[in-house]
Nucleic acid binder design. Structure first.
Lengths: 129, 129
DNA sequence: TTAGTAACTCACAATTTTGTTAGAAATGGG
DNA sequence: CCCATTTCTAACAAAATTGTGAGTTACTAA
């Protein structure tokens, strides 16, 4: 997000990992506080800036703008400008990203499962103390 | 990593998103520079601290240690201590995490595909300038 | 007692990400 | 020209993550 110092160890490591495999590349593009949520909202239908803001509580103008710009650069979303007044900009998923969203089903199931396991472990540990 | 200020907007937003759905929960557990790589290495066989260090170039002792500790807390890896001299600690995936790893296949394919699309777009834009 | 090894831990610094607030650009109607 | 509206942007501040280098612990073999 914003500017990166391209000579830093941090950036060097990041780029190295990004090139390791498809999974790491994908996760690099998706990392960012609100990106998944934005994709999720857009998966139902295209939305304009203000609509996204309204359906994602707590996101700031700046973060929404930054994320959308990065996601456009990364081929995750499309930005469609309509010559209207006041201006209207609609964001939609790219076709590649629509494929991605369909993968989330399994991850969603895994996540919910794992959360249950984790929560039951905590209970168990609590009982043990 | 390390300490979080639990009253910060940042942490509040993070926790809110973590509870949104299984996918976001999963991605929260997996976020961290080297976590995916560590899981990937461990998916083949259990490894000790030093072995992980050797097969992940550039990772520092500190980051490896921090990540492993978090991943153990989050139920992603198990820490097995052997009473030998010098001490031997082996890290393995939990059974839940082994299921996760099998999901990566599709994400890997998606990532590699998407990278190709992106790279060909860049070429096209370059030619245009 | 000393040395050697694995597995860490600590203090601190650098970098990156996220959040806050104010305000700018664009545009047509009045 | 001024207004209202949407879509951002700029400057700054706060917080979080990552990296560095030295040091610690535990244990036993020599």
């Amino acid at each position: 997000m914003g500017k990166r110092k391209i000579t830093s160890t941090n950036t060097i490591n990041r780029d190295y990992l990004k090139n390791e495999c498809g999974t790491m590349y994908a996760l690099t593009l998706l990392s960012g506080r609100w990106k998944m949520t934005i994709l999720h909202k857009l998966s139902k239908k295209g939305l304009r800036f203000t609509e996204l803001k309204e359906c994602i509580p707590n996101i700031s103008d700046r973060m929404l703008s930054l994320h959308l710009k990065e996601m456009e650069r990364d081929g995750l979303v499309e930005r469609n400008v309509f010559a209207e007044v006041p201006p209207r900009v609609e964001y939609t998923l790219t076709s590649s990203t629509r494929d991605l969203v369909s993968i989330w089903d399994r991850l969603d199931i895994w996540g919910n499962n794992h959360r249950e396991i984790q929560e039951s472990n905590v209970q168990y540990l609590d009982g043990d103390l």
